[in-house]
């Protein structure tokens, strides 16, 4: 009995000291998960399938921004104006490359199956094959080692919250992600494009009868998801570097986030990502570091068993 008490108070002790830094780190990670989860959830919305190759869109975005920033910055330290420019270029290159890969993926691995009205199993297998193909090809072309990205800005502590230093890096991630997610939410909610996506998500057959071009809507959905996935690859790569296998773990977690929030639901993916990032961050206090990746998986299994529709429910159309 006293042993349990000691155990708990020890953990409270740890939590007391590290609560704020863990929260800040968790939020930043959570935003990255949200960005990736958008891709899963939107594609799920229109196609009713999980894009297993989304991890490679993320990876491609990471590599594209790495090469661009490496060429532009090299080992120099950019000025403030330069920092802003390089951030914008990094985001653009990552996002556009992600977009390109997503479009190619849809074209090669999905569309022929859709034409044939193939069973769901075929899509899954094709996507897994595409994922394996892509990341191993990246390994072949760019080497199989971790590359650290040229930093577009100097990372330092900006200010402290309750004594916990908050780094520039976190601020940048949170600001960019929050802005982009807000933008996406508006696109889905208010534009004609968003209406098309929601219509297909609710009822593809009816939508096509109402004059929505299904093929085009699907491609656009892949593009949007791809842009956000590639952008996340850039933001992730800034701190953790890029390597051909970088997509696997973050994507698995982002998928968990999408399910947690309610797959097919855009706002759900955002909330799910944040929640997962924070929970995972705090679990460091309780779980052996080697098993930290198990936490997300355990959450995934738990959500699937207890509430498979997630926090906000499944419908893309309903969310916005």
């Amino acid at each position: 009995m006293s042993g349990i008490f000691q155990f708990l108070s020890a953990h409270f002790h740890i939590l007391h000291i590290t609560f704020w830094p863990l929260l800040v780190g968790g939020i930043a990670n959570g935003f990255i998960y949200s960005l990736i989860a958008i891709g899963y959830t939107m594609v799920y919305g229109v196609l009713r399938l999980i894009n297993f190759a989304h991890s490679e869109i993320f990876m491609a975005g990471g590599f594209a921004s790495y090469f661009l920033l490496h060429a532009l910055i090299g080992h120099s330290t950019p000025s403030t104006g330069g920092s802003i420019l390089f951030m914008a270029l990094g985001m653009l290159s990552g996002g556009l490359c992600g977009m390109l890969v997503a479009v190619i993926l849809e074209r090669v691995a999905y569309r022929p199956l859709r034409r044939r009205n193939a069973p769901k199993l075929a899509y899954l297998i094709s996507a897994i094959g595409a994922s394996y193909f892509m990341f191993n090809l990246a390994g072949k072309e760019f080497g199989r080692y971790n590359l650290s990205m040229a930093q577009p800005f100097v990372n330092h502590s900006l200010f402290t919250i309750f004594g916990a230093p908050v780094q520039m890096y976190y601020i940048v991630i949170v600001a960019i992600s929050a802005a982009m997610l807000f933008l996406l939410d508006r696109i889905v909610a208010t534009t004609k494009l968003g209406r098309g996506i929601r219509a297909v998500a609710q009822d593809a057959e009816t939508a096509s009868l109402m004059g929505v071009n299904i093929d085009q809507t699907i491609v656009v959905t892949f593009m949007l998801g791809g842009f956000f996935g590639g952008l996340a690859g850039f933001l992730f790569g800034m701190s953790s570097g890029v390597v051909y296998t970088m997509g696997f773990t973050p994507a698995l977690k982002a998928f968990t986030a999408a399910v947690l929030g309610g797959i097919g639901n855009v706002r759900g993916a955002m909330i799910g990502g944040l929640l997962l990032g924070i929970v995972e961050s705090f679990s460091i206090a309780f779980v052996n570091g080697a098993f930290i990746d198990v936490v997300a998986f355990a959450i995934l299994v738990l959500v699937l068993l207890v509430r498979p529709t997630g926090i906000l429910g499944e419908q893309l159309g309903r969310s916005a």
Binding site: V108, G129, M134
Partner: peptide, 8 residues
Amino acid sequence: GAILVAMM
């Protein structure tokens, strides 16, 4: 990976 996609 290529085999999987090509077969599908």
